[in-house]
Write a protein that binds this DNA or RNA. Structure first.
Lengths: 351, 351
DNA sequence: CTGAAAGCGCTTACAG
DNA sequence: CTGAAAGCGCTTACAG
């Protein structure tokens, strides 16, 4: 049994003051004699006082005002549709506690739009922020404004270490590349070649995807058994004609490719190409449980998808902000989520 | 904005009675005129009343009394050490809400001990139970007692469909066998044989493990490319001499085994044998992130471990009981957790 | 600078 | 059968 929790009243009695005074001290609302303040602080510490946040929530009319700033999910980039669901689940779970969430989205391909939306976020006077730092320079300047105003922010999807983020929840990007490398090594004949494809329309993502590529390639010299060539191309324009053109070319030069690793979430585009060309003998490994990817996983064209739990990223983001702002709990700063290895046989449990 | 929540007071005003009377109606504490009762009920329904459980928690002195009945983790069976951690995490998260948890454990090899402990659980007058139904017959009789007393119970690790369980949180056992089958198929040369080993000391587990074996074997005729023999043995005595004896024998008769699948959590025992015999060419696939298994996974002797999230099973079990008992939320009855595919490269994120 | 009081929405005992 | 009141631990405005 834990010892009975101290209340404000207990502190007040021991300090020989009223509970109003104790409250003023604890909330640093000033207007308290220094001597009284010290006495109250000491007693609070002695009693190991922590507020009963049920009582606080019952009384307080103030709602916690959280704001998310994430990319708008689009036809071309449906990866971002899962993120809102995680936040909504967190809000529901917190239900009787007064928490609001405003979701602001920006165009994944437009830095200016990001800046505009960042300003809008600021105008909402948020208590805390959930942010995907897609555009590095613009994100840094936004984060500086937040820090100046003492508004805590958590990153999802990636983090910028130069900023004062409260927490990051997401993938260990390099390591997820290594996992892909290991799986590739397991299913690729020793003498076959391996191709890495970067399908990134916007240059900003390159850093992110590069990291995965690094991790992927690092696996082979250290731990792999594959002896084939490791090829690496980028296809910035993801229109299907362009993809056909580029992949045709590389297949022509390298007919012995055993596995293709796609570093982003658009492996279905390569799968589309395989289907239209009637290619069956090359393995595909990609990222993220988009509907189209999952369909190709189930039909066997994609062998593995790596999942990064987008829903859990934002769910935990909201929870950490709540814990920090309402319960004064300082969260683990970097929380890497497990790297999920998803196949046609276990995919249903991840949807 | 949701419409403002109705309070007991609102109902009282509309019904022209006092809040005490409303409370008596809502809690079915009787002593209310039938006409009053009906009126209050109707108004409560009209206003879509639901209690503010923050206020309730603040006032109520009654603690929720949860009890778990799980196997004792042992040297020989450390699988069960993760389960308490999940429950403790749930209790911590619920913290200011008044929830107690008593953990009762039983001997995994002794039905009589289970019965004795089940009686002890009953004597604790629990409000809700978390149960691993290892012994089928004894569990059924215990569950009947619980149902008679209106005590809700959730299963982890497995479920008995003949009982009135509130919820099950755990693996889809058959499907997890299929996942193992698929992974085996991917890493085993087409012509090599495949061996399934059942390392089960107590006969009770056979049902469980059989299910995995069924799932495993079902993969090959439907979707596999492996053409080798599928062998299947049980080794009830897991002493290392016995294992050596049995595996030696089967290797002698079947020298072309490419992969061994161990249906339970003791794959490290086969790995021990591999190490002492200097065997390197056979793949090992097993279950559960026990320390010894993880060590062999990292050193490359075990290729895959399948994880069943023991910690999350009990975490969710506690949460569901709390939601049900305190918030009147009826949970999803069967919640299959994802089947985790764990390799040396992603294992650290699962520990 | 400090205290006394009201009130958040509920539960509980008591008086009638 | 029903109502009025106290109190859970906190916050907030007001009086002095």
């Amino acid at each position: 049994m834990p010892p009975k929790k101290a209340r404000i009243k207990d502190i007040a009695i021991l300090a020989g003051v009223s509970i109003g005074t104790v409250d003023r001290v604890l909330h640093e609302r000033g207007e308290v004699a220094e001597k009284t303040r010290e006495k109250v602080m000491r007693i609070a510490k002695d009693l190991d006082y922590s507020p009963n946040f049920i009582a606080r929530a019952l009384k307080t009319k103030k709602r916690l005002n959280l704001v998310s700033l994430l990319p708008e999910p689009t036809e071309d980039n449906p990866f971002w549709i899962k993120h809102p669901q995680g936040m909504e689940r967190a809000i529901n779970e917190l239900d009787p506690f007064p928490v609001n969430l405003s979701q602001i989205t920006f165009d994944l391909l437009d830095e200016n739009d990001f800046q505009k939306k960042a300003d809008r976020v600021l105008n909402l006077h948020p208590d805390g922020i959930i942010l995907a730092p897609i555009f590095k320079a613009e994100s840094i300047s936004f984060c500086e404004k937040l820090s100046k105003r003492n508004i805590p922010f958590v990153f999802v999807d990636g983090f910028i270490k130069e900023t004062k983020f409260l927490a990051y929840i997401g993938e260990d990007i390099f390591q997820s590349g290594r996992v892909a490398g290991q799986l590739t090594d397991m299913i690729t004949p020793v003498k076959k070649d391996i191709l890495v494809i970067n399908l990134a329309r916007n240059i900003q993502n390159v850093h992110h995807l590069n990291n995965r590529t690094q991790g992927f390639l690092s696996y082979f010299p250290e731990s792999g058994k594959n002896k084939g060539n490791k090829l690496n191309i980028s296809i910035p324009n993801t229109a299907s004609e362009k993809i056909k053109q580029e992949v045709d070319r590389i297949f022509h030069k390298n007919p012995d490719i055993g596995t293709i690793f796609i570093t982003g979430s658009k492996s279905y585009k390569i799968a589309d190409y395989f289907v239209s060309e009637g290619i069956h003998s090359v393995n595909l490994i990609g990222y993220d449980l988009l509907e189209k990817n999952v369909a190709y996983l189930k039909s066997g064209i994609i062998k593995f998808l790596i999942g990064q739990r987008p829903e859990e990223q934002t769910y935990k983001g909201v929870k950490k902000l709540f814990d920090y702002l309402s319960l004064n709990k300082v969260p683990e700063r970097i929380e890497y989520l497990p790297i999920d290895v998803v196949t046609s046989e276990n995919v249903n449990f991840f949807l």
